[in-house]
Structures are given as structure tokens and as C-alpha cells.
Design a protein around this nucleic acid. Structure first.
Lengths: 202, 202
DNA sequence: GAGAAAAATCTGCACTGTGTCGAAATTTTT
DNA sequence: AAAAATTTCGACACAGTGCAGATTTTTCTC
């Protein structure tokens, strides 16, 4: 089904952002106030019917919010220094990921949770993980893992480790101090997978 | 809120299972027919109002279905031979997990997806992973990883690796042949994390 | 500045899906 | 056979979503 959303006019641009801001606030206080079209519109300063001028459905609002956050992640993502020692690259990459979870946990958890039921969000999220995987696969190849396509090639290991990192940070982000603790655990595992397998902590 | 469900009578026991069976079928054909109270009741051979005699809500049906499946997993889970070589234990454990995903993928994916919004399912699923973690932590300690509580102790690594396995099998279970491919990848990573870090494939 | 066009908002409507509850039917027990 | 318990039915109320025409506001053109 084609999206109903029209090209946004300039005043509408502000309204679109207000709608997305309102949706994000509701995600953060989901226990206290369930996210409905009514509550999103109220938070954006319009009535329910008006919201459909900008978005075709509540799912489209969520997809746009996730897209906005993912775009922000890309802008904030520091370019990796791929000439540094591999373990330093890995450590820095994990730390950067932890930072994005710290700063955008609510929307990132929403991306994980709504991905299965909103195809657009699911694809956005998988693409985000795929981008990370591509970079980290090159790092693993540089470290000496086989540059091949099989289940034990660098690409497969990188993908599996990126999903591990996503899943563990997803859980850790709900607990105070969880991300710092989990960062050390993620670095430890990534490093142990590298050839030579020396743990980072020793 | 206390569950409204009453103690189930003997004829009702059969009806409860029929309801859970109907719910499972609908999960499997979710693209073709959305799961509603109406469609669950229809599949169980009753009208909508009758379903509420057995379950307080649709969420309770889902929680009972996940509980039934998790109980079944426990029954099917072969006791690990903890005296075997560690790498054989790891390989067998991953294969067993792959088999449970192969045989119960639909309900297990539902457990992952509904966990965030249905607390009872979330707890059930976390408990399941915690049980696996406990066993695998002991295996990692046997392999020589530090038996301590810090972020790089055996317990933390086991937990992170179990969530990695869950996440990767979740994705792999949606693709033909995906679980076999992923099994090799999971074994490879688990083995590389073990002291000595020798990959299983070499 | 006025009028036309476009954009934005409002309001009522229709619909789906969930959960409730009293009445009726069926089954079980005495 | 009658009473009690269990199970089912069906109508009701409600929340939430999305639609569409009317109205209002804003922007654009002359």
C-alpha cells in the first residue's frame, strides 16, 4: 500500500518534527501513557484527524522516528581508524556502539521491538546492522580470519558478533550501569574471537 | 491485575489445549490470517465470548502457549555429558539449541517478539536463557575461564554468548537452511572464546 | 491589499478488535 | 429426575484507528 503522506510543506516540516518528538517522548514514558494516535497528536499540538495529513498511520510515525534516529547515528558515527591495531579498533567500535545505545536507547529498543511487525522498521534495523557487519568483517579479515563466505568465514562471524552486540546492549540498556559492564564483556568476546585469541583483559 | 482464569475442569482441559493449538496454527500463518480472539476461538471450535471463560485475555493465551512450549523444551533437552571434552559439549549444546529452534521456531520467535509487551512471556524467556547460561557458565569455567562475577568472568561471557545464540538462531530460523549454516558459525565463535582459542574448523 | 489557491485543521463517521456479563444450554452430580 | 456445576452464547460497551468532507488558516499572485 502506497504511503499516503504528501510532500511536507515548510510549516509542515516543523509539525512533522513535533509529531516525531511527541512519539519519542511517549516511547520513553510508555509505562505511564500508552502510545496512541490520540496521545501523539496531543503531544504535537494537533487533533487526531490532523495527524493523518502528515502520516498515513501510527506505524508510519514509528518508522519515521526510527529513520530519523538511524540517520542521526550515521552522522554521529566517527570514522574508524582502520590503520590502528585491530584490538584498538574493536575496542573503539564497541565503545561507540555503547555510546549510541546510551544516547538513543529508547528509540533503538523500539526499532528492535517493532521491527517484526513493521517491515519498514525491520529493514532499516537490519540495514544498520549490515553496515556495521561490513566494516567489522574487514577488521576481522585484517586480523587474519579467512576472507571467505562460508559459515566460519569472517563475514559470517562478523554478522553473528554484531547481532550479539545488538542483543546484549538491548538488554543492558534497561539497567543502570549496564552498558559499561556490557561494554567490557563485548570487547572481551570480540577479542577472543580474533586469531591468537588473547583476551583483552589479560 | 489478577488473572481471571478459573481452575480448568476436565472437559475444559481439552478445550484449553484446543485454544493453544489454534493459537499456534495462527502464529504459523500470521501473514495469511491475523491472530485475533475471534480467529483463535474459531480455530478452537467455540465463540469469542467462551474463550474468556478459560483465559482472561489474548495475552494470557500467548503466555500459556509459550509456557507450554518451554515446558516441552525442558522435557526434550538431553542431559549434557559434562565429562566429555569441552569442545564436544559446546558443539552438542549448540546443535541441541538449533534443533529446538528447528522444531519450535514459530512459538520461540513469538516468545522473543511478544516478550517486551507481555511481562509473563518476557520473564519466561529470560528464565529459559538464564538456565542455559547457568549450564554453559560451568562449561566455560571447566575450560579455564575465570570463575568470577566481573564483566569478563565466565558467567558474563556465558550469558552474552547465550543471547548471541538466541539472536542469531532467531534470524536464521526464518530462512531455509539457515539453522545449519548458523550452527557452524555459533560453534566456531563459542570455541574461539574458549581458552586456547583454537577454532573448531581448523 | 484583495482574491485565489494551497495547506492545515477539525469533526463526525465507520469500522475493527477486545473484554464483559447475564441468560441459556449442556453436562455432571446427587 | 432434579439440582448443581460447567460451559456456551450473544449482545453490549468501549478503545483505538483511519477516513473524508467541511472549514479555517496560510501562502501566493496580481
Amino acid at each position: 500500500m502506497a504511503a499516503k503522506r504528501r510532500d511536507a510543506p515548510s510549516k509542515g516540516d516543523q509539525r512533522v518534527q513535533a509529531i516525531l518528538d511527541a512519539a519519542e517522548v511517549l516511547l520513553e514514558r510508555e509505562r505511564a501513557e500508552p502510545m496512541t494516535v490520540e496521545s501523539i497528536a496531543k503531544g504535537a499540538g494537533i487533533l487526531r484527524g490532523s495527524l493523518y495529513f502528515y502520516f498515513g498511520s501510527k506505524q508510519e510515525v514509528l518508522a519515521a522516528l526510527v529513520a530519523r534516529t538511524v540517520a542521526q547515528l550515521h552522522m554521529e558515527d566517527p570514522a574508524a581508524d582502520l590503520d590502528a591495531p585491530v584490538r584498538d579498533i574493536v575496542r573503539q567500535a564497541v565503545r561507540n556502539t555503547a555510546r549510541t545505545w546510551r544516547e538513543h536507547a529508547t528509540v533503538m529498543r523500539a526499532a528492535v521491538e517493532f521491527g517484526p511487525e513493521v517491515p519498514e522498521i525491520g529493514q532499516l534495523w537490519r540495514d544498520t546492522i549490515a553496515n556495521n557487519t561490513k566494516v567489522m568483517a574487514r577488521v576481522l579479515v585484517r586480523a587474519g580470519l579467512p576472507d571467505e563466505d562460508g559459515p566460519t568465514g569472517a563475514a559470517a562471524l562478523a554478522q553473528a558478533l554484531c547481532w550479539m552486540t545488538e542483543r546484549n546492549f538491548y538488554h543492558a540498556s534497561t539497567q543502570p550501569g549496564g552498558l559499561d559492564h556490557m561494554t567490557e564483556t563485548m570487547v572481551e568476546i570480540w577479542c577472543r574471537v580474533l586469531p591468537g585469541g588473547n583476551p583483552c583483559s589479560s
